[in-house]
Measured scan of single mutants.
Amino acid sequence: GGHPVTTQMVETVQNLAPNLHPEQIRYSLENTGSVEETVERYLRGDEFSFPP
């Protein structure tokens, strides 16, 4: 991942996926670069990993 992630982006995802840890959200956003894509992954039931 190398996309810039803002606190705003993390908070937006958190509102839609409250049971995800912020670190999981941030890591996913760094890989996708997209709030929409991260939320899609969540709704699909994809696994969210923590940063290594």
Results as ranks from 00 to 15, higher is better:
residue 38 T to R: 00
residue 48 F to S: 02
residue 29 L to V: 01
residue 26 R to Y: 10
residue 46 D to T: 06
residue 13 V to S: 01
residue 40 E to S: 11
residue 37 E to P: 00
residue 22 P to Y: 12
residue 52 P to E: 09
residue 4 P to K: 15
residue 50 F to V: 04
residue 12 T to G: 07
residue 13 V to T: 06
residue 5 V to P: 07
residue 9 M to C: 05
residue 18 P to L: 07
residue 34 S to R: 02
residue 40 E to T: 12
residue 39 V to T: 08
residue 44 R to H: 09
residue 41 R to Q: 12
residue 18 P to M: 07
residue 29 L to Y: 02
residue 28 S to D: 11
residue 2 G to A: 14
residue 18 P to T: 08
residue 13 V to P: 01
residue 18 P to I: 08
residue 3 H to R: 12
residue 38 T to C: 04
residue 31 N to I: 15
residue 15 N to K: 15
residue 37 E to Q: 09
residue 45 G to M: 03
residue 12 T to L: 15
residue 13 V to E: 02
residue 8 Q to A: 10
residue 12 T to C: 09
residue 14 Q to R: 12
residue 10 V to N: 03
residue 38 T to H: 00
residue 6 T to H: 05
residue 5 V to I: 12
residue 29 L to S: 01
residue 14 Q to D: 01
residue 19 N to E: 13
residue 5 V to T: 06
residue 35 V to Q: 02
residue 47 E to K: 12
residue 7 T to K: 12
residue 17 A to S: 04
residue 17 A to E: 00
residue 10 V to K: 04
residue 32 T to C: 04
residue 16 L to K: 08
residue 4 P to F: 14
residue 1 G to D: 11
residue 28 S to M: 14
residue 8 Q to S: 14
residue 21 H to C: 09
residue 32 T to L: 05
residue 35 V to E: 05
residue 25 I to W: 00
residue 40 E to I: 14
residue 49 S to A: 15
residue 46 D to H: 10
residue 37 E to K: 10
residue 45 G to Y: 00
residue 40 E to G: 10
residue 37 E to I: 11
residue 40 E to N: 15
residue 34 S to M: 02
residue 25 I to D: 03
residue 44 R to K: 10
residue 7 T to V: 14
residue 29 L to D: 01
residue 44 R to G: 06
residue 15 N to T: 13
residue 6 T to W: 07
residue 18 P to C: 08
residue 43 L to A: 07
residue 5 V to N: 03
residue 44 R to T: 07
residue 9 M to W: 08
residue 14 Q to A: 12
residue 3 H to E: 09
residue 31 N to S: 15
residue 46 D to V: 08
residue 1 G to N: 13
residue 1 G to H: 13
residue 34 S to A: 04
residue 30 E to Q: 14
residue 12 T to F: 15
residue 33 G to F: 07
residue 37 E to V: 11
residue 17 A to Y: 08
residue 37 E to D: 10
residue 21 H to A: 11
residue 49 S to V: 15
residue 38 T to N: 00
residue 44 R to Q: 09
residue 31 N to D: 11
residue 51 P to S: 05
residue 26 R to P: 02
residue 12 T to A: 15
residue 42 Y to P: 03
residue 30 E to R: 06
residue 18 P to E: 05
residue 49 S to L: 15
residue 49 S to N: 11
residue 35 V to P: 05
residue 52 P to F: 08
residue 6 T to D: 07
residue 27 Y to G: 04
residue 7 T to P: 15
residue 15 N to C: 10
residue 36 E to F: 11
residue 22 P to L: 11
residue 16 L to I: 14
residue 51 P to F: 07
residue 9 M to Q: 08
residue 22 P to C: 07
residue 30 E to S: 12
residue 42 Y to L: 06
residue 35 V to C: 04
residue 51 P to I: 05
residue 20 L to K: 00
residue 36 E to L: 11
residue 39 V to A: 05
residue 36 E to Q: 13
residue 7 T to W: 15
residue 41 R to H: 11
residue 25 I to C: 03
residue 44 R to V: 06
residue 2 G to C: 13
residue 49 S to P: 15
residue 5 V to F: 10
residue 8 Q to L: 14
residue 52 P to Y: 08
residue 9 M to H: 04
residue 13 V to W: 01
residue 3 H to A: 10
residue 51 P to R: 07
residue 48 F to L: 07
residue 31 N to R: 10
residue 1 G to P: 13
residue 23 E to H: 09
residue 21 H to S: 14
residue 38 T to I: 05
residue 42 Y to A: 06
residue 21 H to W: 07
residue 46 D to A: 07
residue 18 P to Q: 09
residue 13 V to K: 00
residue 3 H to Y: 15
residue 8 Q to E: 15
residue 41 R to W: 05
residue 37 E to R: 08
residue 29 L to E: 02
residue 22 P to W: 12
residue 36 E to Y: 10
residue 13 V to L: 04
residue 26 R to E: 06
residue 42 Y to M: 01
residue 8 Q to M: 12
residue 8 Q to N: 10
residue 9 M to P: 01
residue 13 V to M: 04
residue 39 V to Q: 03
residue 6 T to I: 06
residue 5 V to H: 05
residue 43 L to H: 10
residue 36 E to M: 11
residue 35 V to H: 01
residue 38 T to P: 00
residue 38 T to V: 07
residue 48 F to R: 00
residue 10 V to M: 14
residue 10 V to Q: 06
residue 17 A to N: 03
residue 33 G to D: 03
residue 40 E to K: 14
residue 46 D to F: 11
residue 8 Q to K: 11
residue 25 I to M: 00
residue 20 L to C: 04
residue 24 Q to R: 00
residue 2 G to L: 14
residue 37 E to L: 13
residue 49 S to K: 15
residue 33 G to M: 08
residue 29 L to Q: 01
residue 31 N to V: 15
residue 5 V to Q: 03
residue 22 P to N: 06
residue 13 V to Q: 00
residue 36 E to K: 11
residue 17 A to I: 13
residue 43 L to G: 06
residue 22 P to K: 10
residue 41 R to E: 05
residue 47 E to P: 12
residue 24 Q to T: 01
residue 20 L to M: 07
residue 16 L to C: 08
residue 48 F to P: 02
residue 1 G to F: 13
residue 29 L to I: 06
residue 6 T to K: 04
residue 48 F to T: 02
residue 28 S to R: 00
residue 34 S to H: 03
residue 34 S to P: 00
residue 38 T to M: 01
residue 13 V to D: 00
residue 48 F to Q: 01
residue 49 S to Q: 15
residue 11 E to S: 11
residue 5 V to S: 03
residue 34 S to E: 03
residue 9 M to I: 02
residue 6 T to Y: 07
residue 29 L to R: 00
residue 27 Y to F: 12
residue 15 N to S: 15
residue 11 E to C: 09
residue 12 T to P: 01
residue 3 H to Q: 10
residue 42 Y to D: 03
residue 22 P to M: 10
residue 49 S to G: 13
residue 39 V to H: 05
residue 39 V to P: 02
residue 30 E to C: 09
residue 30 E to M: 13
residue 3 H to W: 14
residue 49 S to I: 15
residue 14 Q to P: 01
residue 41 R to T: 06
residue 29 L to A: 00
residue 25 I to V: 06
residue 50 F to D: 04
residue 8 Q to F: 12
residue 23 E to P: 00
residue 28 S to Q: 06
residue 19 N to K: 11
